[in-house]
């Protein structure tokens, strides 16, 4: 096993995956989000294959296949279909504007390095350099869900967060047990489908997919 190469590849791959996540913050159109998510998932699939190869774990190939089918083929297609249905929705006025968002995302990645420090210290895996990046991606996904107004953007943010968790699991443990991994995929798919149904409901009831219109419920 070529450890230095493995280590470099995993850090590089994690950085690429994180960058696709940050793309969400400076692009505005749903189309760009779908693309970013698709490319990110593709990069994640490659990452799984790399870890499977160097880490000598054939189970990860199976997971990579599922990942590819679900997150590169199926989910982007659904997203595109929604985009056709609603027009190319633009995130024109997020709660936090783009410049601030980008600066905050930098801080979030720094925070991730602080939070993930104990992980990097206890681990002796060649992949440990990527752990803070995966944590950073989780934070960025969370940030997107919180600060963006369109229901669809929130969904993409949630999916990006899921990718971050998958990356964390792959880097840190070379894959969680297969049964759990498959269950998680099933949950992501079902969760996505429900959210998608709701976006249609929101659109037909509120005639827009801005979630800040939903303010009926108070005390």
């Amino acid at each position: 096993m070529n450890e230095p190469l493995f280590s470099q590849l995993s850090t590089l791959g994690s950085s690429v995956i994180l960058l696709f996540g940050i793309t969400l913050l400076w692009r505005k159109s749903l189309h760009a989000y779908t693309d970013a998510f698709q490319w990110q998932s593709a990069a994640l699939t490659v990452m799984f294959v790399i870890i499977g190869y160097f880490g000598n774990d054939p189970e990860l190939y199976v997971v990579a296949v599922f990942l590819f089918v679900l997150k590169v083929l199926i989910l982007p297609r659904y997203l595109e279909r929604m985009e056709k249905r609603f027009g190319d929705q633009r995130e024109s006025q997020p709660y936090v504007n783009i410049v601030t968002s980008l600066m905050l995302s930098g801080l979030l990645v720094l925070l991730a390095y602080v939070v993930a420090r104990p992980l990097v210290l206890v681990s002796d895996l060649p992949t440990r350099g990527g752990l803070p990046l995966a944590m950073g991606l989780i934070f960025v996904g969370l940030f997107v869900v919180i600060t963006r107004k369109k229901a669809l953007t929130q969904i993409v943010g949630f999916l990006v967060m899921e990718n971050g968790i998958a990356l964390l699991a792959a880097l840190g443990t070379f894959g969680i047990p297969l049964i759990v991994e498959l269950g998680v995929f099933l949950d992501v798919l079902m969760g996505f489908l429900v959210m998608q149904v709701f976006v249609y409901h929101i659109h037909s009831t509120f005639e827009s997919i801005d979630v800040d219109q939903m303010n009926e419920l108070k005390h």
Binding site: L119, S123, I138, L142, V145, A151, Q154, F158, M161, E162, I165, L168, A169, G172, T173, I176, V184, G191, V194, M195, F198, H201, I202, T205, F206, V211, M214, N215, E216, L217
Partner: peptide, 27 residues
């Protein structure tokens, strides 16, 4: 619809964080 959208987004994101915790424990 508002209630269920809040429910599914907040709970899904929350539960995803619980999964981070589970992964860290396994790690």
């Amino acid at each position: 619809i508002e209630a269920s959208w809040k429910y599914i987004i907040i709970c899904s994101v929350g539960i995803a964080l619980a999964f981070v915790g589970t992964v860290l424990g396994y790690f």
